[in-house]
Simulated assay, not measured.
Amino acid sequence: MPLIKRSITLSDSLKQDQKQAKKRNVAIFIHNGVEILDFAGPSEVFASTEGFNVYTVSLSKEPIISQGFIKITPTYSLTDCPKPDIVVLPGGETGPFIENKPLIEWIKSSSTHAEVMLSVCTGAGLLAKAGLLDGKQATTFHSYIEPLQRATPNARILSDTRFVDNGQIITTAGVSAGIDGALHVVAKLKGNVIATQTARYMEYDKWKPEEGLIVKQSDN
């Protein structure tokens, strides 16, 4: 191979490697009974936006069942999951997992380095168990607001709020609100233009950024 051509090839390869290296890892936790749209909505947002490496993680690599009829094989388990930059905690039947110590420890550990910890629906209960909602404002699925408030007396759980952004910790209301929360994360990290492009690609014309709450530290 001529020297010049080889140099160009190596340069292109290096640029491609650098581009791949800059991708943010998005770990989406799934479990038996997870709500389909809770994880599929954010998955679609991040997978449709350049710069994100999206994968699923569960307690093990054994298949899980979503809403009784969809079988999903997780990409990773908690023990071999790549270090996430963004963690998504969908809801659904989260009750049995709130007391799972390895999961809660993984959430705590991830929060020490992740840019964003995003919950959808009752996934906020996992953040609460990990102590990540204490002293913060948050939201969740409408029928879970009161139980979460009782379980997290040091937090303020809001109703009629599409998402709440506390900085690193972002919570969303139920089911489809996970799409709004994920689009908000994209806007936060990559700008409103990119987030709008993603929403347009998804033909999701229901995204209204003003429906969320961005909390100033003095407001908590």
Rank of each mutant, 00 (worst) to 15 (best):
E210T: 09
E210N: 11
T198R: 10
L133K: 05
S111D: 11
S159Q: 15
P209L: 08
D160A: 14
E115G: 04
S109Q: 14
D165R: 04
N166K: 03
I107N: 03
Q197H: 12
G174S: 09
V116Y: 01
A130H: 12
G125V: 07
M202W: 05
A114T: 05
L126N: 04
M202P: 11
L127W: 04
I179C: 07
T196I: 09
R156H: 15
I157V: 10
T172M: 00
G167W: 03
S176K: 15
M117P: 08
K108P: 02
L148W: 01
T198P: 01
L127G: 06
V120F: 02
S143H: 15
I107K: 05
F163K: 09
K129N: 12
A182G: 06
D160H: 15
I169A: 07
L148R: 09
I169F: 10
K188L: 06
H184V: 03
E115C: 04
V185R: 00
G123I: 01
Y204V: 13
A114P: 04
T161R: 02
M202G: 11
C121S: 05
S109M: 11
F163M: 11
Q197Y: 03
T122Y: 08
A195W: 03
S119G: 07
T171F: 00
A199N: 01
E115A: 06
P147E: 12
G181H: 02
L158G: 14
A114L: 05
K136R: 12
F141S: 04
A114I: 06
I170C: 04
V185P: 00
G135Y: 04
R162P: 00
K136G: 00
V175Q: 10
I145Q: 06
G123R: 03
Q149V: 07
G167R: 09
L158V: 15
E115S: 05
A182H: 01
L127N: 07
E210F: 13
D205Y: 13
A114G: 00
A151M: 07
D165T: 04
K108F: 09
V185G: 05
V186T: 08
K108Y: 01
D205K: 13
A182N: 00
G167L: 06
G167Q: 10
Q197F: 07
S159I: 10
L158N: 14
S159C: 09
D180V: 10
I169W: 01
I145E: 07
A124V: 07
A187C: 09
F163Q: 10
K190E: 11
F141E: 10
T198H: 05
I169G: 01
G178T: 10
K190S: 12
T198A: 03
L189Q: 12
S111Y: 13
G181L: 03
H113R: 06
T196N: 15
E146H: 15
Q149H: 00
R156E: 15
S176M: 14
Y204E: 11
S111G: 09
I157N: 02
A199L: 04
R156M: 13
G178K: 02
Y201R: 15
A138W: 00
V116A: 00
A138R: 08
L126P: 03
N166M: 01
S119D: 05
S176R: 15
T171L: 03
I169E: 02
S109E: 14
T196W: 13
T196M: 13
A138I: 06
I145K: 10
A124E: 07
L148Q: 12
I194K: 10
K190D: 12
A187P: 12
P147Q: 04
Y204F: 14
K188G: 07
D165N: 09
V193H: 13
G178S: 08
A182V: 01
Y201I: 15
T140D: 10
S159R: 15
